[in-house]
């Protein structure tokens, strides 16, 4: 998704002047912060389906690859947060190609951290329960971190 966004972003960023691209990005970043804080209702595009069990039965290699692709790209899953959408929009409107690649690597690392931490916590579903118990705090903290990191990156690239 990051690579597709980066390729399209190269076109968008070449065609549109910076103020036209950065204004809606800043506006959406503010809206996402309010959404993650629970102060604004903002629906995000999501497929609202689980990856079917049959995918895992396609073999250790193909099944794993397809499951990871569908989960990792959000093709067929739920999305409790709007932050991946914000990062994708930033990649489209402002982030340079190399930054899009590193953002994708960071996103992939986080998707690995979740099951690793869950297994370390016991692998019995209690990690997910703890996550839900602190959902709002985690949503606000990660939203602030995401917006701060995006802003920092764009300032450093621009100077």
């Amino acid at each position: 998704m990051a690579v597709v966004g980066a390729v399209l972003g190269g076109l968008v960023q070449a065609l549109l002047p910076a103020p036209v691209r950065l204004a809606p990005l800043a506006l959406l970043a503010g809206a996402v912060l309010l959404r993650e804080a629970g102060l604004l209702t903002l629906p995000v595009p999501e497929n609202k389906r689980l990856v079917p069990e049959a995918v895992q039965h396609r073999g250790r290699f193909l099944g794993t690859i397809q499951f990871g692709f569908e989960m990792g790209t959000g093709m067929r899953t739920y999305s409790p947060s709007a932050l991946p959408h914000l990062v994708l929009l930033a990649i489209l409107l402002a982030v340079p190609f190399a930054g899009a690649v590193t953002a994708g690597i960071g996103f992939a690392a986080a998707r690995w951290i979740m099951p690793a931490a869950s297994l370390g916590y016991g692998g019995d579903g209690s990690w997910e329960e703890r996550w839900r118990a602190h959902r709002r705090l985690l949503a606000v903290a990660t939203a602030l971190a995401t917006v701060a990191a995006l802003g920092t990156g764009l300032i450093l690239v621009d100077r």
Binding site: S81, I105, F107, M114, A139, T142, A145
Partner: peptide, 9 residues
């Protein structure tokens, strides 16, 4: 930014 966004999900 990608890491924090991914962890949020």
């Amino acid at each position: 930014a990608g890491l924090a966004a991914g962890y949020a999900n």
